[in-house]
Amino acid sequence: MIRFAFLASALFLAATGAFAQGQPQSGSPAAGTAPTTVVAPTVPVASLATVQRALAKPGVVLLDVRTPEEYAAGHLSNAQNVNFRAADFTTQVSQLDPTKTYVLYCASGNRSGKATVLFQEKGFKNVINAGAFKTLQEGGVK
């Protein structure tokens, strides 16, 4: 019975990622805690000053990675819309010039953070997660 409990516990921890995340390897999670979930990596939001400095440079591309509906409701001037949720988003990114600097924003910084990671995985070296549209707008970014 003890062997079964140990194996069941080990399988549960392995299935929830506890081994890989440095959690205790014996016993089970504390009562009332949810199993761990895998979270896609993101890039932190850059400061408003960093975003403004980048956008002041010639040749920088501003990308709004929200949906076309969100973009149509309002966007920063000169922003191009590349929908992060589109089925062909990765293909669209692959068609961009990896030597340029890109500043990405969305509604909260979540999609732009995930998109920044994807850009980096595709070999883009100069990508900035500018965060939330509203925050940029309120900060004077046009």
Score class of each variant (00 low, 15 high):
Q23M: 15
P24C: 06
Q25D: 13
S26R: 12
S26K: 12
S26M: 12
S28G: 10
S28E: 03
P29D: 00
P29F: 00
A31S: 07
G32T: 05
T33M: 01
T33L: 01
A34L: 00
P35A: 05
T36P: 12
T37L: 06
V39I: 02
A40N: 15
T42M: 08
V43C: 02
V43T: 08
P44K: 03
P44S: 06
V45S: 07
V45H: 10
A46C: 03
A46E: 09
S47A: 11
S47P: 03
L48E: 07
L48M: 09
L48R: 08
A49T: 11
A49E: 15
A49D: 15
T50P: 06
T50V: 02
V51F: 07
V51Q: 02
V51K: 02
Q52L: 04
R53D: 14
R53Q: 15
A54D: 11
A54K: 04
A54Q: 13
L55T: 07
A56V: 00
A56D: 04
K57A: 15
V61F: 07
V61H: 03
L63V: 12
L63G: 07
L63Y: 06
L63R: 08
D64V: 04
R66G: 05
R66P: 12
T67V: 02
T67F: 01
P68V: 03
E69Q: 15
E69V: 14
E70D: 14
Y71E: 10
A72G: 01
A72P: 09
A73F: 05
H75M: 01
H75I: 04
L76D: 08
L76C: 07
S77K: 15
S77W: 06
S77G: 11
S77Y: 09
N78T: 15
A79R: 03
Q80E: 14
V82I: 14
N83L: 08
N83S: 13
N83H: 12
R85G: 06
A86M: 09
A87R: 11
A87H: 04
D88C: 05
T91H: 13
T91Y: 05
T91C: 02
V93A: 09
V93F: 08
V93Q: 01
Q95M: 11
Q95D: 08
Q95I: 00
Q95A: 13
L96W: 07
K100V: 02
K100S: 13
T101A: 15
Y102A: 00
V103A: 05
L104W: 05
Y105V: 02
A107M: 03
G109P: 11
N110I: 11
N110H: 09
N110W: 10
R111I: 07
S112A: 04
S112Q: 09
K114W: 04
